[in-house]
Design a protein around this nucleic acid. Structure first.
Lengths: 249, 249
DNA sequence: TATAGTTGTCTATATCAATAGACAAATTTA
DNA sequence: TAAATTTGTCTATTGATATAGACAACTATA
C-alpha cells in the first residue's frame, strides 16, 4: 500500500544532489534493516534502477559512504555494509551519558574539549534562573562510544557555585561525578527541547561527519530534586549514528 | 571563543548546494532570533560577504525562501521576514495533538488522509504485542495549525478491537475522541524513539515542504493506564516549523 | 529633486552534477 | 577453464550551480 517500490522519492533540483540523497537513503536503509550489516549491498546496476538514476550517480553515493567508513567496496565481489547500528540514546528524568549507553557499547566516555567563563546569554540566564550577564562556566564536551563520537555538548553552570567544575570534569570525565563534588548527588531533567538541522563546520569537525549530515539538537535544563537549576545544556547528536529514545520519565 | 564570525561554515562540494545551505542558515537565523520577524534582512551584498559567496547565490537562497512563504522581497526597499516562530510541540506521558498546541495557535485540527486494513509488519506487531501478520487498521493523518501542516502521522490499531475507528476518526477529527468510542478514556505514551532525516516525496507533498527540508520522526506506542498497547504510530514533523518539547512525563 | 541604497534582470564563463556508453579488472560460479 | 557477475576507469555530453560584472527599476532620504 505505502512506500512506492521503484524510483523511490528522489527529488531533483532540490539543492541537494542526487548522490547525497541516495547516500542518505542507503544509510537509512542500513539503520532500518533493509540492508543487513556485514552483507553485500545490491549491485550498483540494481540500485541505479531502484532509485531511477544512472549507475555513476549511485557510484558517487557509494564512494562518499566508503569515505565515511560505512561501506567497503571490493572489485568483483560487491559492496559490503560495515557500520554498526545506530545507538539508542535514552532521554528521561535521569538522563546520564554513560549509563544510558550501557549494553550497547563496550566502552564510552566524555572528553572535555574546552572550558571558559563568560557572561550568561539571555537563554542561559533564563534556564539557570540567573540575572542576565551573571558569570557562568561553559564546558564543551564530546561523548564517544567505542571510539566513535556520538555527541557534542555545551553545558553552562553558575560560576559562583561551581567554581572548579572544569577541573573536576577533566579529571573524572563525568558530569555526574563532577556535580557530586559540589554536593549534588542527584539531579533530574526538567525540560528538553528538540530540533534538527544540518551539521555546521564545528559539528563536522568534532563529530567526524561529512558535509550534509544531520544533527539532532537538544536543549535541556537539569535541576536538583527540589527544583533548583544546576545545568543548562545544548547537545548535538549525529542523526546517522544516534537515535533518541524518550523513556518514560 | 566559539563560532567563527564571517565566511561562516559553508561547505563546498558537500552534495548540498550553497544556496540551499544559505537558505537553511537564514531559516536558522530567524528561528534563533538573529533575524527579527517583520524586520528587514541585511541587504544581499552584506549577506553575500557574510557567507563568503556571490550575491547571485544569496539571491537563489532568498528566492527559495520567498517561494516557501518565509520572506517577502520588495524592490528598492529590502527583504522582510514573514514567518512565524516554530511551534513547540509537547511530548509527554499524555501527548495530545490539540491540547498540546493550545495557546500557540488559534486553530488546529487533524485531517484523515486515508485508512486501510493490512497485516501487521514486524515492528507494528511488536509495538502492539500482536502476532506477526495480525490484521491492523492503519490511519494516515495530517495535523494542521492555523492552516499550516505541522505533522503527518501513520497510526496502527488492532483491527479486531477497533473496527470502525476510521469512521470515528473522520467524524471527530480526534484520536482521543475516537478511542473514547471504544471505551478508552485515557491513554499514556509508553515509549518514543526519535530521529531525523530529509523529507521524502510524500512528506514534501503532505507537509507543503520544499525539497531538502528536514523532518523530525517519532515512533511511539500508546498504552492504556494498565499497560495494554492501543496504538503504534510514526509521526513526522517539519523541523523548520516545529520543535519538540519533551515535558516531564 | 538629486542621490544613495536596495532589489531585479541580463550576459558570460567556469565548475559541479548527472547521464550515457564502452571496456578493463577482479571474483565467483558452472 | 570458460562464462557470468560485479566493481573500476575512461571519454563525452548535457544541465544545474556558482561566480563576475554591468545596468535597470524602485524606494527612501538629504
Amino acid at each position: 500500500m505505502i512506500g512506492q517500490m521503484a524510483a523511490d522519492s528522489i527529488e531533483r533540483r532540490s539543492g541537494v544532489s542526487l548522490w547525497r540523497q541516495i547516500a542518505d537513503k542507503i544509510l537509512h536503509g542500513i539503520a532500518v534493516g533493509d540492508f543487513a550489516e556485514n552483507a553485500a549491498l545490491p549491485p550498483e546496476v540494481a540500485l541505479a534502477e531502484r532509485y531511477g538514476v544512472n549507475r555513476h550517480t549511485v557510484r558517487s553515493a557509494i564512494s562518499a559512504l566508503v569515505q565515511e567508513g560505512v561501506l567497503r567496496a571490493e572489485q568483483g565481489r560487491g559492496t559490503f555494509v560495515l557500520s554498526r547500528k545506530r545507538l539508542s540514546y535514552p532521554i528521561g528524568a535521569r538522563t546520564r551519558f554513560s549509563t544510558g549507553l550501557q549494553g550497547q557499547t563496550s566502552e564510552r566516555h566524555i572528553v572535555l574539549l574546552s572550558s571558559s567563563v563568560e557572561p550568561a546569554s539571555q537563554r542561559v540566564a533564563e534556564g539557570l534562573g540567573l540575572g542576565r550577564g551573571a558569570e557562568v562556566i561553559r564546558l564543551e564536551t564530546r561523548g564517544e562510544a567505542d571510539g566513535r563520537p556520538v555527541s557534542r555538548a555545551a553545558g553552562w553552570f553558575e560560576a559562583k557555585r561551581f567554581a572548579g567544575i572544569d577541573k573536576a570534569m577533566a579529571e573524572t570525565g563525568s558530569i555526574t561525578a563532577s556535580l557530586a563534588r559540589f554536593g549534588i548527588d542527584d539531579y533530574l531533567r526538567q525540560s528538553t527541547v528538540l530540533s534538527a538541522r544540518h551539521a555546521d563546520a564545528a559539528d563536522l569537525a568534532d563529530l567526524a561527519l561529512q558535509p550534509g549530515a544531520i544533527v539532532l539538537v537538544t536543549i535541556s535544563v537539569n535541576v536538583t530534586p527540589d527544583g533548583q537549576p544546576v545545568q543548562f545544556s545544548e547537545s548535538r547528536f549525529p542523526a546517522e549514528r544516534v537515535e533518541l529514545k524518550l523513556s518514560a520519565l
